[in-house]
Amino acid sequence: MPVMPGAEPYHHEGGRIGVLLCHGFTGSPQSLRPWAEYLAEAGMTVALPRLPGHGTTWQEMSRTRWEDWYAELDRSLGDLRGRCDEVFVMGLSLGGCLALRLAEVHGAGITGVVVVNPSVANDVPLLKLAPVLKFVISSVPGVAGDIKKEGAAELGYTRTPVRAAASLPRLWALTRSELEKITQPVLVFHSPQDHVVKPTSVRILREKLTRGNLNVVELADSYHVATLDNDADRIFAGSLEFIRTYASVPLQGD
């Protein structure tokens, strides 16, 4: 299946610190490419995979589930851990949920987590009917492109495959049930004006991550896809400072 131009995965061989970046549901690596390149220029070894079913057609995505997306990230994480002294995981939206799940599963194998407008709860009541709806309709209107910055655009699907979406509640529930396992530092960038993910997810993280390891930074001038929005530079610089603070080995060039 041909990949849409701009939706290709990104990899950069850098120093001893690795960063795994996770894009969002129905999106593509394009939404995180500037962030990945920023960290690569700072000396990191960076992996930004394309999740199965993404960056091609929504019909192909309809044949995938959250377990497929997680497996691809888990494989990339294993590769980074084999080449780097330590690894940070970062993600946008559902990619943020997957990053948190990786931290729950791998524990000390991940040094820290940075997420942007993470999704860990069902904000769409219609999704509760998805297990039934998937037999009636194949897709619903898409959620990509929630950006405040004029001229900026996200490369994602205009339709959301119902079968793929029907697998999300299980991932959310599983991730929420084990958030207490996360002992690593977690940095959350949150847009109060988010038309895709409601504040519920950040509220849950505040309630569950009570070890003093959570820091929430508000993005006043961005919508959901903040990595392509007006506050993108704050995210990039903030994540680099986060790495400098918590990494036990020096960055390449420092």
Rank of each mutant, 00 (worst) to 15 (best):
Y246I: 04
S167C: 03
P185F: 00
N122L: 08
A220W: 09
V114Y: 12
W69A: 03
V87Y: 14
S191L: 04
G18P: 06
E150Q: 09
V115W: 02
Q184G: 12
Q30G: 04
H224L: 00
F242K: 09
H195W: 04
L20W: 15
Q184L: 07
L39P: 08
A121R: 12
K149M: 10
R206C: 03
W35A: 03
L179Q: 03
R203E: 14
L32Y: 08
N122D: 15
L205V: 04
K134P: 08
T56E: 00
E72R: 14
E154T: 05
R101G: 10
R234T: 14
A130Q: 06
Y157K: 02
Y70A: 13
V124Y: 09
L209H: 06
S201D: 11
V217D: 10
R176E: 07
W69M: 03
E37S: 12
T160C: 09
A121H: 14
A71F: 07
C97V: 05
D229M: 11
E180Q: 11
K148P: 10
P9N: 06
G78K: 09
D123H: 06
L179K: 03
K149T: 12
S177D: 14
A121S: 15
R65T: 13
P34H: 00
R244I: 07
A237Y: 03
F88E: 03
M1F: 11
E207R: 11
R244A: 02
A36V: 05
I204M: 10
T45F: 05
E241F: 09
M1T: 15
